[in-house]
Write a protein that binds this DNA or RNA. Structure first.
Length: 308
DNA sequence: TATCCGTGGAG
DNA sequence: TCTCCAAGGAT
């Protein structure tokens, strides 16, 4: 629990105490010039960027984002092609299920929304691959709405500023949403800029390992800074193992399929991993996930790329 | 709610 | 070398 402030009135949300003007000025000076932030970026472009940025750093997203939108400038263009083409274009961004979901999302946009990206949070939430973060991000960044946007960056900033704690818990809480909303200016465009500014501050300055507080517009209000940067008391997170896991094997199998223009024989997949049982389990999982298509002749392909 | 799901750069 | 971690979502 955070420190109790029983004397605070509910009508005085803590967000009101943050220097939003300073935050917005910091953003104007320091924000990265990213293509999905350009004034002419379409809602579809924003949506594509948000899918790609899920758990993937900006620098690796940039080239794929450009080629993707060049090839599929609108949802209908993507929906007209097989899912396997989306997986191939996704390249090495990781988590190829996102490519599958983005392809399915394009199909839903065509079928239910006239090929357009809806501007309503609830309608966005109903789309494949769109969760609480992405729906709000599209509403705020593409449609400039006054909607709280909570990602890992914003959560870290709010936790440090308001709780005086180095890191936040794993899940977005109602407290996070209330806090984020309470500090948003009433004017929608200004609110949208505040949301993106908080994210950028978390991404550039208020980073997980070595924060740059000397340049922070919120430094004078930050309880974590004022408390002397105490470490988290709680249990440490489980390290995420990767080497030797099914995850790694799936990645190796997908790489073979992506890089082959034609369906591949089973033998081409066998060589990527020595343990046959684990390899089979990984391949079965990929098939079950719809990422791999087993052909009648025993070969394997990206989904939908072979006309039967 | 905890777990699963890729990849590669940084320190 | 090895650990951490980067704009989450689905189940």
């Amino acid at each position: 629990m955070r420190p109790c402030h029983a004397m605070n009135t509910p009508s005085a949300p803590e967000g009101d105490r943050l220097p939003i003007d300073a935050l917005l000025e910091w953003y104007d000076t320091n924000a990265r010039d990213l293509p999905w932030r350009a004034p002419d970026a379409s809602p579809w472009a924003v949506l594509v960027s948000e899918f790609m940025l899920q758990q993937t750093p900006v620098n690796r997203v940039l080239p794929v984002y450009e080629s993707w939108l060049r090839r599929w400038p609108a949802p209908a263009a993507l929906a007209a092609e097989p899912a396997g083409e989306a997986i191939r274009e996704w390249g090495r961004l990781g988590y190829p299920r996102r490519a599958l979901r983005l392809h399915a999302c394009a199909g839903t946009l065509v079928e239910l929304h006239g090929g357009e990206v809806p501007d309503d949070v609830d309608a966005l939430l109903a789309l494949p691959g769109v969760g609480t973060y992405t729906a709000r991000a599209i509403a705020a960044f593409a449609y400039r709405q006054r909607v709280p946007v909570i990602d890992t960056n914003v959560r870290r900033v709010l936790t440090r500023v308001f709780d005086g704690v180095a890191d936040s818990s794993a899940n977005v809480t109602n407290l996070d949403l209330d806090r984020a909303k309470s500090l948003l200016p009433l004017q929608p465009e200004r609110a949208a800029r505040t949301s993106i500014s908080l994210m950028e501050l978390g991404a550039l300055n208020c980073v997980a390992r070595t924060p740059r507080c000397s340049d922070c517009p919120l430094a004078t209000q930050c309880r974590w800074l004022l408390a002397g940067f105490p470490d988290n008391a709680g249990p440490v997170r489980r390290p995420q193992a990767f080497a030797g896991t099914d995850r790694q094997v799936r990645g190796l199998l997908m790489a073979v399929l992506r890089e082959s223009p034609a369906p591949v024989p089973a033998g081409d997949l066998d060589v990527v991993w020595p343990k046959a049982a684990q390899r089979a389990r990984a391949l079965d999982g990929l098939v079950a996930d719809g990422l791999v298509d087993p052909l009648p002749d025993g070969r394997f392909a990206l989904p939908g790329v072979v006309t039967r």
